[in-house]
Amino acid sequence: MSGLAAPLTRVRRGPRPRYAAAGAGPVAYYTLVAAGAAVVLLPILWAVSTSLKTAGQVFAFPPEAIPRPFAWGNYAEAWSGTVPFDRFFVNTLVITIVPVVGTILSCSLVAYGFAFFRFPLRNLLFLIVLATLMIPSQVTVIPMYIVFRYLGWLDTYKPFIVPAFLADSAFSIFLLRQFFLTIPLDLRDAATIDGAGPMTFYWRILMPLSRAAVTTVAVISFVSRWNDFFGPLIYLSSIPKFPVSLGLSFFKTFYGGGSGGAGVPHMEWLMAAALLVSLPTIVVFAFAQRAYIRGVIMSGLRG
């Protein structure tokens, strides 16, 4: 089976609906997918509807699906009425985009090393990579804080950025390694014969060939860093440096430990803020979609 030459063949096809593979005709296919999407979407639609309601209508019972009137002002209130979300947005972009770049570069290199090269202790080292995923952060946070304190990194973005460039995401290393392992070694050998060094192979062949996997790592780390709460909670202490995840907490109250109004005096503002906060991640996902079009991945091969 390993004599597959298929990945080397350039595959280019015009779009051609392939409902058949889904099991039935277009009607059945779309009905199935749309029904699934509706179930998944319902809670989010509720959030959207809540974000547009007036305070009095939020908890009306029986619940009302359509806001009356549409309180668009909630979004303005959420954005700037309580705390400066524009500032938080910029901050979050910094502690998201820079580390994502770091994660992609460093983790792909490390995964490349683990997948394509033999070296002593490789399996043991890889097991250690995985082990770092298995220890709950609750017991390492104090020593971590001490390290960052000695480095003078507290209340800066360095705890989020520097480790990312040093491949701190075992998840990404493992994921990329799995994908790299499916790429024929022959391909590297062929490239080597053509005079390409290991870095040329990595950059010119491996990375383009793994576009879908690399994009996946990018999207997943973007989303998880964008929504990270505990990291910023512990390492940041100046409000002008806060990311959006901490900003959302301003809509909750700790008084009474969450009695009465679920600790949220204005649910409609919180929901509006939460939806605004998730917009960039939606945009990122929309762009990333281009990596999941079948057939395309082969096109980078001979470029």
Partner: peptide
């Protein structure tokens, strides 16, 4: 709590602290 029932007029009585004058009371219209 989840549905802010008191502020919503569906509950007669609720034992709570002073903070709820603002947290819940402000939602009572």
């Amino acid at each position: 709590q989840q549905t802010n029932l008191f502020a919503n007029g569906k509950i007669g009585m609720m034992a709570s602290g002073y903070w709820d004058i603002v947290v819940t009371g402000s939602a009572i219209k």
